[in-house]
């Protein structure tokens, strides 16, 4: 029996947007019925364009936002029955921008030890110091940086500090929200290598949110593709990348620009604009941008079907 570190069942998050005096209130479905399950020790890559709801999912899982409906289990427990400290001990985030994720007024040691102090988990200052030293060694930060401030560190070092802060309580799950996209290429490789090493050393589970498919393919064991608040395709990383079924996944894959001078620029037939999530299209939400769109697609929203081992939300996954 597979043990899941994280499971969501038909989870939804709606925001009420006031459209001004004359338009009344509108509902924005940021996350619209998402089922995800991450087995312990695996890496789930969550992929999608900006505005698709992947960051909202991250906030729901971290307990920073309350879900509208659905169920969310963290290590087998429903999230609404857990306190914020309990959630924090199991799941910790690493954010995208290492320049805004560290408090500029605190020293590195203070930043890394924050979760310990907030939870009251340490036995005195000596214990905190020892744990900070240990974790700094694990993430490859020189001990002399302890008394420095974030502005004195490079982007890569800052991201290591963010990882150290996330790991100091030894959580089971680390939620990485675009952890490398603000970094230089050579530094990005260092951080990815480190994340992979840490996973096997500390037996971690990652939810890896990214828009960079090359990175996700490199790191993830499972992949979920998100579009307008829904998962449109989900499956094993190898299957999904070698044999994508949903036209959106195919378009995403086609738009990855791998360094290959023999290839030209791909033709992306996605139209020029991402739809407004306040006013989503009828039927299949992807149909206005889909090159294989049929009549049915604009009327009926597709159900998830199993297609060569993957879950696909498309009426005509066979067409391709």
């Amino acid at each position: 029996m597979v043990e899941y570190a994280l499971q969501t069942e038909n989870i939804k998050k709606e925001y009420t947007i006031s459209g001004g005096i004359f338009h009344g209130k509108k509902t924005l479905k940021a996350v619209d019925g998402v089922n995800l399950s991450i087995p312990k020790g695996s890496i789930l890559g969550l992929v999608g364009e900006s505005g698709c709801g992947k960051t909202t999912i991250a906030k729901l899982i971290l307990g920073l936002e309350k879900k509208t409906s659905g169920e969310l289990y963290i290590a087998g427990k429903e999230i609404s029955s857990m306190g914020s400290k309990e959630i924090a001990r199991i799941i910790q985030p690493v954010f995208q921008d290492p320049y805004s994720s560290l408090n500029p007024r605190k020293s590195i040691a203070k930043i890394i030890s924050l979760p310990l102090r907030a939870q009251g988990l340490a036995n005195g200052a000596a214990d905190i110091e020892k744990k900070v030293d240990d974790i700094m060694e694990i993430v490859g930060l020189a001990p002399r940086l302890k008394h420095n401030y974030p502005n004195q560190l490079s982007g890569g070092q800052r991201q290591r500090v963010a990882v150290a802060r996330a790991l100091i309580m030894r959580p089971e799950v680390v939620l990485c929200d675009e952890p490398t996209s603000a970094l230089d290429v050579s530094v990005q490789a260092q951080i990815l290598n480190m994340l992979l090493d840490l996973r096997s050393e500390l037996n971690l589970t990652y939810l890896f949110i990214s828009h960079d498919l090359a990175v996700v393919e490199h790191i993830a064991s499972h992949v979920a593709v998100m579009y307008l608040g829904r998962i449109v395709e989900e499956g094993n990383a190898e299957d999904l990348f070698s044999n994508p079924s949903h036209p959106y996944t195919q378009a995403l894959l086609a738009s990855v620009l791998t360094p290959d001078p023999e290839l030209g620029l791909p033709e992306i037939q996605l139209g020029i604009e991402y739809p407004n999530p306040i006013d989503p299209p009828s039927g299949c939400s992807f149909h206005p941008r889909c090159s294989k769109c049929q009549e049915k697609c604009s009327i009926v929203a597709p159900e998830a079907v199993i297609k060569s081992g993957k879950l696909v939300e498309c009426h005509y996954p066979d067409n391709f």
Binding site: L62, S84, S101, R165
Partner: peptide
């Protein structure tokens, strides 16, 4: 700012 979100996610009151 992300650091406030991170502190919140660390269980700070």
């Amino acid at each position: 700012m992300d650091y406030v979100q991170a502190a919140k996610a660390a269980g700070c009151s």
